[in-house]
Design a protein around this nucleic acid. Structure first.
Lengths: 250, 250
DNA sequence: CGGGTATTTGACGACTGTCAACGCCAGTGG
DNA sequence: CCACTGGCGTTGACAGTCGTCAAATACCCG
C-alpha cells in the first residue's frame, strides 16, 4: 500500500470476501447485478491506510464508495486550511455520491483508521439508477438522511455548548455502533479511534478546548475518553446533556 | 386569510396566474402534466401571511412546496426552543420534500414576508417520479444542492467568526437575488426583510450580538443594514471577509 | 533508546452571551 | 389629532465560553 505525495491513497485491490459488513452494506445501495459481475468486483475493492485521503475537496467526483471496514471522516476546509468535520462514516455507509455528471466533491474524506472501501463509478451508478428505479430511491433516501444529519450539525454548532456538542458526537457514535451490532447494548466501552484533534474538528473546537471539555466530562463522571476507546459512565445523563434524538441522528 | 391558534397558516386558494417567478420556478421541479391539470392547479396554490408557518418540525410531511413569491426561513429548534436557521428560501425554491412515504418534517418553515406557495402532495410527487425519471433526477439534484449549502453552514458555524457569518449570509442572499434578476448586477441596495433577530437565528448569534456586528460592519464601511433593506458599500471586501464561494453557495 | 505525535496544563485575551434599560417607529383606538 | 402599545433596534456593563500561545508530559513505533 502506498500513498502519493499529496496524501491521496493509491487504491490497491484487496481481498475482503468474507468481511462481515459486506453483505449488510451492499443491500443498502448496491445492486446485485453490479457486484455479481466478477470483473467489477475484482477491481472495485480497495484498502486505505489510516490517515490517507479517499478523495479530496473540489476533486472531480468520478467515484462513490461503500465503506466496508474502518472509519472515515468527511470534512470541509476553510480558506486558512482549518478543517471542519461534517460526519464520521462507519462501515456500511455510502459516501461521495454526486448526482451531477461532472460535479466535484463538495467535501473531502480521509481514513481515521485503516479502511476498506468498495468503489463505484458514478457513471455506472447513474446508469443503474436509470435501469433500476429502486436504486435511485434508495440513494435519494440516503441523501435525505445525510441531509438530516447535516441539519442536526447546524443546530448543534449554532446553539449548543462545546460540552453538549462533544457529548452529542460520542453518544451519536455509540448509538450507531450499537445499531450495527459492533458493541453490545448499552455497553460502557466503545472503540474510539478519533484523536482529540479530530473530535475537535468534528465539533468545531480547538484541540486544547476539546481536551478541557473531556476532562470536565471525566470529573463529572459522565464518560472517560482514552486513546482508542471511550468508556461511558452515565449514558442517560449524557444523552440528556447532548439533547440527543436518535431519530434525527442515526 | 386566517391563522390557526398554533400559528399554522390556513391555506387559502389564491390567484397568481401571472406571477413572474411561476414559469421559471416550475421548470425546476414540476412536471407540466401536473400543473396543466386544471383541477390540481386550482387547489395547489396558497398564500401565507408574514410570520405564519408553512409547516412545523416533526409534523407529518404530507406536502412539499414550490415558493412562488416571498421569503421563507427553514429552521430547527433545540430542546429549549431556541431556533437555528438552516436556510432562507427564495422564490423558485422547492422545500419540504421527503422521499420516505410517512416521514415527518426534519425542520420547520415560516414566512419571513407574506408568501405564495404551490403545494404538492408528496404521494403525487412520488408517483410522478415513478412515471417520469427526469423529475426524480431533478429532485435528487435539488437535494444534493441543498446538502452542499448545509455543509457550507456547518463549516461557517464551526470555523468562522460572527462577523464572517453575517457577511456570508448577506453576500449569499445578494448573490442569489442577483441570479434571479431581482436586483441589478452589483446593485448596492437590496431588499432585506429579515429582522436582526432572524439574521441572528440564521448565523447562530444572539440578537444583541448581531446588532453589534452590524454596527461594526457599518463603521468599517462594508455594508449598512436598515429595516427592510441592506446597502452594500464594498462588495469585494465583503466577499473576501466572508470567504464566499458562489459555487458552493447558490 | 530516540523521535515524532498526541495529550495535558496554565496564563491570558478575544469573542460572544446575558441582563437590563432606553429609544424609535408604526399601528391602533379613543 | 393624540396617547398608548408592542415590536424592533440600540447601547452599556458584566460574565462566561472559547481560542491562542507556550511548555511540559505521556505515548507509540521503529
Amino acid at each position: 500500500m502506498s500513498v502519493t505525495h499529496n496524501g491521496q491513497a493509491r487504491a490497491t485491490p484487496t481481498k475482503c470476501e468474507n468481511c462481515p459488513v459486506r453483505r449488510k452494506a451492499l443491500f443498502q445501495v448496491v445492486a446485485d447485478d453490479y457486484l455479481h459481475d466478477a470483473e467489477s468486483r475484482r477491481t472495485a475493492q480497495y484498502e486505505l491506510p489510516a490517515r490517507s485521503h479517499l478523495y479530496q475537496e473540489k476533486q472531480p467526483a468520478t467515484m462513490a464508495y461503500t465503506l466496508f471496514d474502518g472509519w472515515l471522516m468527511l470534512y470541509r476546509t476553510d480558506a486558512n486550511g482549518n478543517r471542519q468535520g461534517l460526519r464520521i462514516a462507519l462501515p456500511g455507509d455510502f459516501v461521495g455520491y454526486s448526482p451531477l455528471p461532472d460535479a466535484k466533491h463538495s467535501h473531502g474524506a480521509f481514513a481515521v483508521t485503516a479502511a476498506v472501501v468498495c468503489a463505484f463509478r458514478q457513471s455506472d451508478l447513474r446508469a443503474m439508477i436509470d435501469r433500476h428505479g429502486d436504486i435511485g430511491k434508495q440513494i435519494t433516501q440516503i441523501q435525505a438522511h445525510y441531509l438530516q444529519i447535516c441539519e442536526t450539525n447546524v443546530l448543534g454548532l449554532g446553539r449548543r455548548s462545546a460540552e453538549q456538542r462533544i457529548a452529542h458526537a460520542v453518544v451519536d457514535l455509540h448509538h450507531r455502533l450499537q445499531q450495527r451490532g459492533e458493541i453490545e447494548h448499552s455497553a460502557p466501552r466503545m472503540p474510539f479511534p478519533l484523536t482529540q484533534e479530530m473530535l475537535g474538528e468534528l465539533t468545531g473546537l480547538t484541540p486544547v478546548h476539546t481536551n478541557r471539555i473531556l476532562r470536565k466530562l471525566r470529573t463529572d463522571q459522565l464518560m472517560v475518553c482514552e486513546r482508542q476507546r471511550v468508556e461511558i459512565l452515565d449514558l442517560p445523563r449524557l444523552i440528556d446533556l447532548a439533547e440527543f434524538r436518535p431519530a434525527a441522528a442515526t
